[in-house]
Simulated assay, not measured.
Amino acid sequence: MYSAADFIPTSYTSTIENGNFEWSAPSNIALVKYWGKKDNQIPANPSISFTLNNCKTITKLAFSKKDTSASTNGFSFDLLFEGKPKEDFKPKIQKFLERVEAYLPFLKDYHFTIDTQNTFPHSSGIASSASGMAALAMNFMSLEKKLNPEMTEDYFYQKASFLARLGSGSACRSVKGNVVVWGNQANIEGSTDLFGVEFPYTIHENFKNYQDTILLVDKGEKQVSSTVGHDLMHNHPYAERRFAQAHENLDKLIAIFENGNIDEFIKVIESEALTLHAMMMTSMPYFILMKPNTLQIINAIWKFRNETQIPVCFTLDAGANVHVLYPENVAAKVRQFIQDELVVFCQNSQYICDEIGNGAIAL
């Protein structure tokens, strides 16, 4: 288990003039939600997520050594989104580079071209910061491994998750594993606030290859960003109780993942989703990210589950879109239900079928 200090390199044993890497990193969907953070992207409570498979960011990083005689001593990078320059993404990358520079001291020695694209529609309301920052962190770690070939695989992945967290908190859960825990949790060995770790205990067959169909209710920009939402937890009247509840729900999931009890899983997952939005509604200033169609979908899922006893449930991110979660063995029936009753509530009838995946992949 590494500390933040372990991620500050003392020196490098190799050199490299130029080259490129390419990684894909997936989005993830939190089951126990992270909402509220301390300084340096440290979470106020632990979270656990399913890593997704199809919703991902693919990022290519080309690098070349800068001319040392040149007077430019800042970060030098071009940013392309789907092959075209994307100026409005640059401040976020600049901020990320400033945050990680102590851990990647070579960053100012190179000019970078970052070429990134998503497999899901941009501004679809699916968080691309998690997949995007994870993919970028993997590329930078690939470069550091060239400079330090003795680096272990453990160090490589833990540091990648640590760096991704500094770009976007939930990005640390997009680096590795099907089920990832981020944040200190007494009953989960190896869990830490510094990076995401693969859930270390038994996962029942019921939860293997779980399905997630994402219903795109609203593809517009959120009226309140997640960063602002997290900050509103600082003086929130219910914050402390909420943080305690997250620990309790995570403990419940340890047992649920072992015994395969899907009914109990559904209770925890839906309660977490609604609690997340309750915290938004009770912050000051208060805000609502759900849309009328979000509620229509939730009610339709409850009715369908009640009538058919098919174990389908929902979760929500900090937005209006609904993630419909269900075991693989009922996939055909649930997809038919989505087609028959839920698509009508999606913007332009759009939805994305996804499932549990394995994390970032070098291309």
Score class of each variant (00 low, 15 high):
64 S>K: 14
278 A>P: 00
125 G>I: 04
5 A>D: 14
159 K>I: 04
231 D>A: 11
321 N>M: 09
207 F>E: 12
156 F>W: 12
83 G>T: 04
77 F>E: 12
64 S>D: 09
119 T>R: 06
188 I>D: 07
98 E>A: 14
214 I>N: 00
200 P>W: 10
359 G>E: 03
24 S>M: 13
64 S>P: 01
91 P>I: 12
170 S>R: 08
122 H>A: 12
125 G>Y: 05
226 S>K: 06
318 A>H: 01
95 K>R: 14
355 E>R: 14
170 S>T: 14
296 Q>T: 12
38 K>R: 12
356 I>K: 02
315 T>I: 02
190 G>Q: 10
25 A>R: 09
190 G>T: 06
318 A>K: 03
305 R>D: 08
131 S>G: 09
227 T>P: 03
23 W>C: 11
83 G>D: 04
60 K>N: 11
62 A>F: 10
112 F>K: 08
6 D>E: 06
131 S>L: 02
350 Q>W: 02
39 D>L: 07
121 P>H: 02
212 D>T: 05
94 Q>M: 13
355 E>D: 04
258 E>F: 07
37 K>W: 00
154 D>Y: 05
132 G>L: 00
329 N>G: 03
227 T>H: 00
269 I>C: 15
244 A>D: 12
105 P>K: 07
190 G>K: 09
171 A>S: 15
322 V>Y: 08
70 A>C: 13
95 K>M: 08
176 K>F: 05
175 V>F: 06
339 Q>I: 04
78 D>H: 13
303 K>S: 09
158 Q>K: 14
75 F>G: 10
287 F>G: 11
149 P>D: 15
22 E>L: 11
130 A>N: 00
154 D>M: 07
147 L>F: 14
18 N>F: 14
